[in-house]
Every structure is written in C-alpha cells, then in structure tokens.
Design a protein around this nucleic acid. Structure first.
Length: 267
DNA sequence: AACGGGGTCAACCGCGTCATG
DNA sequence: ACATGACGCGGTTGACCCCGT
C-alpha cells in the first residue's frame, strides 16, 4: 500500500530534543490535549515530525512517568509478562504504570536478558538453557507450525518468530532451578489476577483531561503552563530521578489526585 | 591523562493495523 | 471492497557516558 511519508521530510528536525522544544510540546499538549499528532508540530510551532512528538511525549515528557531503574518487583513483573506476551512491550508497559514500552524494552535488552542468561534461563523462551540446547536438537526438524502461546487475555494466540516450536514457557514453568523466580510470580494468585484483569490500568494521561484552566480539543481543561507545569521542565532538566520521583509524588500527586480518573475519557 | 570498548538509552525507521471515505 | 491516511508498535541505531587499561 503506497504510503506517504509521515511528515514532510524537508525542514523537519531530527535528533535530541532541546529544552525549548520540550517546553513547546508540553505546553501544547497541556493546552490542547493529545489529538492529531500529525497536526501537533505545526500547531505547537515545532519543526518536528508528529511521530517524533508523540514519542517524545509518551516516552519522556508525560508527567506520570516514573523514571530510574525498574524495581525488583517491576522487573519480576516484566519477566513474567514477557514469558506470556513475548516482545509486546506496549502490552507489558500497560501493566506497569508509569513505565513506557521503550523503557521496558531497553531495560529488558540491557539488564534482564543478561540476568536471565546468568540464571540459566533463555530470555526468549524462558526455558532453562540446558533444556533449550536439548530441545534444539530434538525439535530441529519439528513442525514449527504447532506452537501456540497464551494471549494476553489467557487464550491461545498465534506464534511469533521468537517463540518457535515450544510449549508456552508458562506451561513448563514448574521445571528446575532458575525458573523459581517465575514460579514465585506465577503462584501469586493475587498478583496474577491483577495482571490479567480485562481492564488495563488506567493511563494517567486521561487524568490530564480534567485539569482546570485551559481548553482542550474535547472541551476538557488543562492548567496553564505557568501555573502548574513549570515543575515539569525542572524535573526534565534535573531528571525526576535526581530529585526522586517520590518527591514528585509528594508535591504534585496530591494535586493530581484531585483530577484522578473522574471519568474514563481517553483522548 | 588519554584512549578504547562496552553499556545505556533516547530517538528514528519501517511495517502493521485500524478508521474512514 | 478497496484505497488512503494516521497512529502505534517493535526493532534498530547512534550518541553519550562510564570504566578499565
């Protein structure tokens, strides 16, 4: 299908975002909400691709983002979710409030993968590595079409290239050594039930629709930049982690709570 | 102190999916 | 039913940082 470039390549800036650009984007989103990413650069006065704006917002500027390393608990969650969902980072991220798919993907590739390998677990299949090697030999001629995976809602999903010819890791998790970590998670019924709720955790973005002052596309409101969001750039400058996100929670979340999910409006 | 290699992570690219006309 | 446009996702890249030599 013939596709036009997502944006006019001419005059579109690439590379790292400047503080000025960040400010423009944040200000625009807070004023207008998230609508029509394609139109955002023009309306916000940015020489960026709409895609780039969306990415910058979702991966870096969103005020609800936690920053810094994943906690042990989050890491275990990621491992378990990955064993079920594979590389569907956005689905995994949706169940880890404040984390982005990009962040989780990066963390997976740089930390968790190595950790699992060290523990003797294949990070792709979540099988013990020694078992992997044997399975590799015995199934090298097997029918690869037979593999099934548990989908996010617990059903059977079709295969992906990275989960070839093996039963779902979850099914075999009772096996030895390194799998204890995963067992621990899988045996935690309350954790699992929360993980597999039909409704994903609400995205905090929706809460921004209800902020006072300033009109959005759909008629909901946002605070003006000066009134409520100067802190945001400060946090970007220092890195929220430098100040501690808990600090942000203390200062701002009280304010945020008042906007909390009064409805389920999603922009 | 300088250099090189590896690690990390923000950003880009290209494809798939979905909505709309 | 088909074409088109926009968005979202996952893989990859490249710049920067850190650490060891």
């Amino acid at each position: 299908m013939g596709r036009q470039p997502c944006c006019d390549k001419l005059g579109v800036k690439k590379g790292p975002w400047t503080a000025e650009e960040d400010k423009k984007l944040i200000n625009f989103i807070l004023t207008n909400g998230q609508c029509c990413w394609r139109a955002v650069p023009k309306l916000a006065g940015l020489r960026r691709c709409g895609k780039s704006c969306r990415l910058r917002w979702t991966n870096y500027l969103r005020p609800d983002l936690k920053r810094g390393l994943l906690s042990d608990g989050e890491e275990q969650m990621v491992i378990d979710l990955h064993s079920r969902l594979g590389n569907r980072w956005s689905k995994i991220a949706a169940r880890l409030p404040g984390r982005t798919d990009n962040e989780i993907k990066n963390h997976w590739n740089t930390h968790i993968k190595k950790k699992l390998i060290k523990m003797g677990i294949d990070p792709t299949t979540h099988e013990p590595l020694d078992k992997e090697a044997k399975a590799e030999e015995s199934t090298s001629h097997a029918d690869h079409s037979a593999d099934n995976h548990i989908s996010e809602n617990g059903g059977i999903a079709n295969s992906s290239s990275e989960h070839n010819s093996r039963a779902t890791p979850t099914e075999n998790r009772s096996t030895s050594d390194g799998s204890n970590l995963l067992n621990k998670i899988c045996n935690d019924e309350s954790l699992l039930s929360s993980l597999w709720m039909d409704d994903e955790p609400p995205l905090v973005d929706s809460s921004w629709n209800n902020l006072p002052a300033g009109e959005t596309c759909d008629g909901t409101s946002f605070p003006s930049w000066d009134e409520n969001c100067a802190w945001l750039l400060d946090f970007q400058d220092f890195g929220t982690n430098d100040l501690g996100f808990d600090c942000l929670n203390d200062i701002e979340l009280n304010k945020m709570d008042t906007f909390e999910m009064s409805d389920k409006t999603v922009v």
